[in-house]
């Protein structure tokens, strides 16, 4: 009986000392992973414009996302966003042969759980002339939906070309 009692007491001590423990290194790794995935939105955003890949561009938005690109110019939902990009945006016009990119130091990402923000500048270079034709900025709200980071809101703006 003494042996059984000892085993029982040891089990109790192990149970008492066990339990979940906050793993800060795991949280940090997860945060870096989220930031990398949000950064991929910016990469795809510019690749979609450069390649005129409207499906890729639309795939970056959440189903009910909003996008404001001018006074009275707010698209709501992916259908309107698709129309805005395909019909209104100059980079997607056939006559324009632009390359879209951003200066790396003009990127800012914040993450908070399943939500985050993304800000970057966007420089458009005319491939034919090699000149920068436009420099803009955009602020995004992003969210992890069904495991994938997507844009829920975008506000476009202008900036001063510093390069």
């Amino acid at each position: 009986m003494g042996g059984a009692l000892g085993v029982f007491l040891i089990s109790i001590v192990l149970v008492a000392c066990g339990g979940s423990n906050a793993d800060s290194s795991g949280d940090q790794a997860r945060r870096f992973q989220d930031m990398w995935e949000i950064d991929q939105i910016e990469k795809d955003f510019h690749r979609a414009q450069t390649q005129k890949n409207i499906d890729l561009m639309v795939s970056l938005y959440a189903p009910n996302a909003t996008m404001t690109v001018g006074p009275g110019a707010t698209a709501s939902g992916v259908d309107e966003i698709r129309r805005f990009w395909s019909e209104e945006a100059a980079p997607f016009k056939d006559e324009n042969n632009w390359m879209s990119d951003h200066p790396a130091y003009k990127l800012e990402i914040t993450v908070n759980g399943d939500r985050g923000t993304l800000h970057f500048e966007c420089h458009y270079v005319d491939i034919d002339t090699g000149e920068i034709v436009s420099a803009t900025t955009a602020d995004f709200d992003v969210a992890r939906i069904d495991g994938k980071w997507l844009i829920t809101n975008m506000v476009g703006g202008t900036t001063v070309l510093e390069v």
Partner: peptide
């Protein structure tokens, strides 16, 4: 919006 953004949109 300023000119540049108007360029894009």
């Amino acid at each position: 919006v300023a000119t540049d953004f108007g360029t894009v949109w």
